[in-house]
Write a protein that binds this DNA or RNA. Sequence first.
DNA 1: CTGGTTTTTGACAACCCGTCAAGAATAAAC
DNA 2: GTTTATTCTTGACGGGTTGTCAAAAACCAG
Lengths: 258, 258
Amino acid sequence: MCPRIVTDEDRLQRDRELLDTALELIQQDNLTSLSMDKLAANVPYSKGTVYNHFCSKEDLLLGLCNCGMEIVADLFDRAAGIQGRGRDHIFALTYAYLLYALLYRDQFFLHVQSKTPSLYEKGSPERLERNLQLEERLLGHVLQAVEQARNEGDLQLKPGWDSMQVAFHLWAGAFGAIALASIKSQAPGPLRVQFKREVFNQMALVLDGLNWQPLTDTWQVCPVLRQLESIYQPELMALQDMGISLSVPATCGQGENE
Amino acid sequence: MCPRIVTDEDRLQRDRELLDTALELIQQDNLTSLSMDKLAANVPYSKGTVYNHFCSKEDLLLGLCNCGMEIVADLFDRAAGIQGRGRDHIFALTYAYLLYALLYRDQFFLHVQSKTPSLYEKGSPERLERNLQLEERLLGHVLQAVEQARNEGDLQLKPGWDSMQVAFHLWAGAFGAIALASIKSQAPGPLRVQFKREVFNQMALVLDGLNWQPLTDTWQVCPVLRQLESIYQPELMALQDMGISLSVPATCGQGENE
DNA sequence: CTGGTTTTTGACAACCCGTCAAGAATAAAC
DNA sequence: GTTTATTCTTGACGGGTTGTCAAAAACCAG
C-alpha cells in the first residue's frame, strides 16, 4: 500500500556519500567551482535526488561545514585527553584548531560563513540545529579548559568577566590569527609572517593578557607538544603529504624562535 | 586617424560611477545579490562597457574592497591626529576599524575575501596593485603607533620580536573579535556577547599581553574617547541612523562594564 | 564628406540554481 | 501473476548568472 522504500539509514548513508564527493570536488578544484550540477554528475543520482537531500546549495555548504566541525570536535575530544594544566589544554585546542585550518582550509572558512544570513537563511532546520549542537560542543571544550584553570587557581577573572567571555576571546584570537596568517601567507602583501608560529604567539598574548598562569615566560611547551605529536600523528602525516610541516619552536611565545 | 575618445579622467570618473552604483545596490539588497547584469541595468552604460572597466565580477568586488580600504585609510588618517600615547593611538585605530566594520559590513568582510585565490586570481593587475598599496598604507598607521610606543618607552619588545609582528597581532586580534562578534551577534548560537565591548576587551588583552604601558588597570579611556567622538561625529551620526549606538564604557577592559 | 580608429552595444553561448510533471520502483492486496 | 496505491527518481525546463564578440555607432583628421 504505502511502502517506505528509503530507510533512514539509507538516507544518512547517501547524505554522507554526497558530502564525501562534494569534498572531493572542492579538494580537486576549489569551493567556488562546486555546483549542484557537477555534484550530481559525479554521483550515481540525479539532480532531483540531490535536492532531495539538500534543499539548496547553501544547505549543502552547511552540511560541509558541519562535516568539518565534526572533525574539529573529534580533534578536540582527543585534545581533552592530554595531561596538563589549563594552559596546556588551551594550547592543545589551539594546536588542533590550527591543524584543522591547515588540513581543511575551505571548511575552516565555511564555519564563519555559515553564520552569515546568506547561508543560514537558506539552510534546512535540521542542519542548522546540528550546526548549533556542534558549535556548543566545540565551545564546551574551551569552556572546560577555562573552568579547569579557574578551579586550579591559574586564572582569576577580573570582576565583571565570566568564563564564556574568556572562551570568546580565546576563540577570537585564534580565529583572527589563523585567518589573517592563512591568507597573508599565500597572498602577496606587506605582512610576511611565519604563519604557524604567530598563531601560538597570539594565544600567548591573550593568555598573558588574562594573567593566566603560568605566564609565557615560565610555561614549558615541550611536555604538551610531545603528547600532541603523538596524539595527532595521522593528521601530521597527512599534513606532511601536503608539503606542510607543523613544527612549533620549543621557546614558543618567548621570542628567539627563529 | 586614431582618436582617443575616452580620456583617463573619464575612465576614472566612470570607474567611480560604477563603483558608487554597485555600492548602492549592495546597500539596498546584499552583496550576493549583486550581479553584473543588474549593475549594467542601473547605469547608463551597457554590460560590455562595464566589462570594459572591470575584467570580471571578482575585479569589481576587488574595486569595492579598495573603496572600503580608502574609507578606512581616511578614518585612520584622522585617528592619527589625536593627542595621546601609543596605546591611545591603538585604541583610536581599533575604534576606527570597528566603526568601519559597523558602517560597511560587506566591505569589511571583502577585505579578507580579497586575499583568497578565488578573488585575487581574477582581479586586474592594476586593482591588485592598488590593493597592496592601500594595505601598506593601513598597516603603516599601526606600525607608526607601535614605533611611537617603543620610542616613548611604553613598549619593550621581547627578544626576537619586531614591530611588524606586533602590528600583525593587533590586527589579528581586532579582526578576529570584530568578525566573530559581528556574526555571533546576529546569528543564533551559544555565544551571546556584547558585540562592541568585546572588541576593545580583546585589544586590551593583547596589549596587556605585550606588556604595553600603561596597562589596562591604569589606562584612562576617557580622554581619547572624547577626542574620537568629536573626530568621528559624522560616522557616529550615520551609525545612529542605522539604529546602532557605539557607546564605550568608561572602564573599558577593566571589567565592571555592564 | 570620407576613412581609419576607438568605443559601445546587446545578442549569444555556457553555465548555474531550483522545480516539477512524468516515469520508474516498490510492496501489499487480490 | 497482476493490480494498485504510494514513494522515489529523473532530466528537461525557466529564469538567472558570467563573459564574449561581431556588428554598429561614435569619433576625429584630412
